[in-house]
Design a protein around this nucleic acid. Structure first.
Lengths: 292, 292
DNA sequence: GATCTGTCTATTGTAGATAAAAGACAGAAG
DNA sequence: CTTCTGTCTTTTATCTACAATAGACAGATC
């Protein structure tokens, strides 16, 4: 295979989802922007829709013949892009598996295990190297530096610098700025989840990312915003494979978020700094505890 | 060609340089660690040395027959690794040439222009993307964000945070730490260059990098240290293609460095912060002036 | 005249192949 | 018994090829 057609399959599935509700299809360019793909892919989707007897299609006339059923969808495993597969597979190995710091990483071996070509693995490792967990020895292997307490401390040190500054900048956003509405939405979601925390505490991880990214964005600094990728990926996989006390941990973090949000809304620098520090401190402790 | 033999050629040249002074060759493993290459490459070098009649070689007996001459060396163009060539070529286009922000970057076109395969260009762009100057549109082109005043401001904002913190950490290095010796060496070099500034001001660029990297290292934080790569590459190419007032600019920076170094030696936090801020402020101004 | 479709071209993402370089191991030499 | 060399295997760096996807343009349709 030269290139997986995951873009097609994923867009096809999303197109079926559209058909579940609406019973008409827009024009090709219109569909293209709805699904975020090119017309070439849209036409491939339409062709397939016709093949499986879901629509009748001739030029601009598109008649929906029936509702999509479960079998029409491509299985979700087939819609993940190769880089997502590699990332998951790799993170599982280094976060979950017993991967010792100093261990060598072998491109060829990784590629064979994941079942892909070496090019994709190489490109992934290069992209991933900016997270500071691996390092390249030129003309030779990569070295795993490991998800160690030092890593966590260095990460949180920078995170705290960046977030304090971003939070301070947040207070200066003009009244009409969309970030204030988004902040309110996020606050509301916190309250909803907290109200039914036993059942919904798992939704926190995603919300956490959304909230902190919003704060970081207020810095208007690409380096600060980009750095949040590292935090996000670490916390993302960390939450996924470390579930001790998750309910309690998340509930506490949500309370802290709400206080932090109130502080932001007050626009009082001292209050903001205090609430932010308080939350960052407990986030750091949580992360560190889980590593040892 | 599958792989350029630049490692061989470069190590070969360095081996000739060794022969200029010493007239004996160590064992294969020993040579390997001296030149930083594997035994495979050492043996290729020895084979070539024998071919061009520079040595007689049989097992552990290596007799040097004559001194190397200029023609023995490989031309320097052939010793640059492909990634260095791509980097230079790319930086020239975006810093020197009239590259507008928002411009599309085409992997294939770049590869054709530089005369390499697309894989290498792709990998370079991925590595380079962490500098915040380009951004990928998946399944489509890269976008040049450009070396704009915003870029410079965002870069210096983070740089100032990091350097202030690193400088503060420097004061806490224990007395015997090698950084203090290195600092003294760097100070001395500053004085030497300043004493003959009209002729030697060009040496500042390298010294500048060496000094600031030393300071950043005191943070003991990989993210802070790695970030210095971005600053270094920007200033490196920037100095190279922007020579207005270079002598005066560099002289001023060196004076500031010396004050900064004195402050570090005093270990007085207030003095350090003051000297550091002073220098960073003028560095930022210099950078910004040159962009418009 | 604006937007759509048919068709064609160019570029990206990925696999596979190959030379260069690293590195492993056994036996030789000190 | 330590370090070296000869030989062999494995891995990396890079090129080329090709399917998937994006994107351009002219003529068709509203």
């Amino acid at each position: 295979m030269a290139k997986q057609n995951t873009v097609f399959k994923d867009a096809f599935n999303r197109c079926l989802a559209l058909l579940e509700t609406s019973s008409a299809l827009a024009s090709e360019p219109e569909l293209g922007s709805q699904l975020g793909v090119s017309r070439t892919t849209i036409r491939a989707i339409l062709t397939r829709l016709e093949e499986i007897g879901l629509i009748e299609w001739s030029k601009r006339r598109k008649v929906v013949l029936r509702k999509p059923v479960a079998e029409d969808y491509f299985p979700t495993e087939e819609t993940d892009s190769l880089s997502e597969i590699i990332e998951r597979s790799f993170m599982r190995r280094i976060l979950a598996g017993g991967a010792e710091p100093g261990m060598q990483i072998n491109e060829l071996e990784l590629a064979r295990e994941i079942g892909t070509g070496t090019t994709s693995v190489r490109e992934f490792l290069i992209r991933f190297s900016r997270f500071g967990l691996i390092e390249k020895r030129p003309n030779s292997h990569w070295v795993l530096k490991g998800f160690t307490p030092e890593f966590a401390l260095e990460l949180t040190e920078v995170r705290e610098m960046f977030e304090l500054r971003s939070a301070a900048a947040f207070a200066h956003l003009p009244d009409g700025h969309p970030a204030w509405t988004e902040l309110e939405t996020i606050a509301e979601l916190h309250r909803e989840i907290l109200a039914d925390v036993d059942n919904r505490y798992r939704e926190f991880s995603e919300l956490d990312e959304r909230f902190h990214l919003l704060v970081h964005r207020a810095s208007r600094n690409r380096f600060i915003i980009d750095f949040y990728d590292i935090i996000a990926i670490v916390f993302h996989y960390h939450y996924q494979w470390n579930k001790t006390n998750a309910r309690q941990r998340n509930a506490r973090a949500m309370e802290e978020h709400l206080a932090y949000i109130d502080a932001l809304k007050s626009r009082d620098p001292a209050r903001i700094e205090d609430a932010c520090r308080r939350h960052l401190k407990s986030a750091r402790e949580t992360l560190l505890q889980s590593i040892n």
